Simulated scan of single mutants.
Amino acid sequence: MPPTDARADTVTVPGTDLGTSATASQSSGTDGEDTLDLRLPEEFIALCAEVETVDPAAHGAVAHAIGLRNPPEGTEGAAQPNPAVQPDTAVPDDVDARPNSGFSPNSYVPPSDDLLDRVADWGPTHTPAGVFHLLPVHIERDLPLITRWMNDPAVAEFWELAGPQALTEDHLHAQLAGDGRSVPCLGVLDGTPVSYWEIYRADLDPLARHYPARPHDTGIHLLIGNVTDRGRGLGVTLLRAVADLVLDKRSACARIVAEPDIRNTPSVAAFLGAGFRFSAEVDLPGKRAALMVRDRSLRDLL
């Protein structure tokens, strides 16, 4: 399991394979505002009660139509969900989606062919360092380069993917063959690959078990590939550029998150420099992480 941070020079926040036994730290203050409170409107509850009084079978059909339970016997044709109306990332209203409630965000995947709004179509963006482009990984084209980066000691210490090419290939295939909740990318600056990224749906990731996730939260992992590109502020520049891309291209996303090791002060500083704020300390398998958040509402202030 690759851990989720690195030294400031690599600005590495690799993927997380989180188990279910770890618990998020409890914190006070404004972080409590992040907790979801999913409730049916009082008017709707009253309406359902009125329908049940008049016709219990119809009440069951209504409950089925909003996804709360299976249709009662003999009412299969009474009221069915409209197939043209699909849920987004909201969970059923009778489920407590707060952290540590036992609800697994991984098990509730919205019906979508592309959970990240077509990263391949995001296009280039201008940065102080040059024109930057996120390109989804092609195994045949990119595997040798990414494998070489993973075997750099500064990267390997934190990603734990040093070794034969097959090890990196398996890591990439796991995402490319998935449902689209994570997209591995090369970061290309002025036509030259300089970084590796993973853009992922944090609200559908095991990470969501450890913080009050909101629908469409988007996570990022990053490593800077070449030694000569480290230690000169490039990580801060690219983190800000990619965060801006996410906010520009994913209108439903209100927050971008990352989880570097709390002990890695330079890495946390890089996120702060890129407009992220420190939200909380979170216990993850193998480390205590700094939950870093970039809010759409604070985009022009940080």
Rank of each mutant, 00 (worst) to 15 (best):
I139W: 01
S112G: 05
G225A: 10
H221R: 05
R299M: 02
P260L: 00
A289C: 06
D37L: 11
L161Y: 09
L223G: 08
V54F: 10
P72Q: 11
N264H: 04
I262F: 10
V11S: 13
P266H: 02
N264D: 02
F158V: 10
L135H: 09
D203Y: 02
A46W: 01
G180M: 06
P83S: 06
I199K: 02
L116W: 04
G286T: 08
E160F: 06
L223A: 07
N100P: 00
D94L: 11
D55G: 06
T20D: 10
D248C: 00
C48R: 12
P111R: 08
A58W: 11
T237R: 08
V109H: 02
A289L: 01
L143E: 11
T168A: 14
D93N: 07
T23I: 07
V137Q: 07
G235N: 04
L40F: 10
H59S: 15
R201N: 03
A79Q: 12
P87G: 03
V13P: 00
S112N: 03
R255C: 08
V236S: 12
G67V: 09
T218S: 05
G29E: 10
D295H: 15
V137N: 07
I199V: 15
S27Q: 13
L238S: 07
A156L: 01
A97I: 06
N106W: 00
H126R: 14
L245G: 00
A78G: 12
P212E: 05
A270W: 01
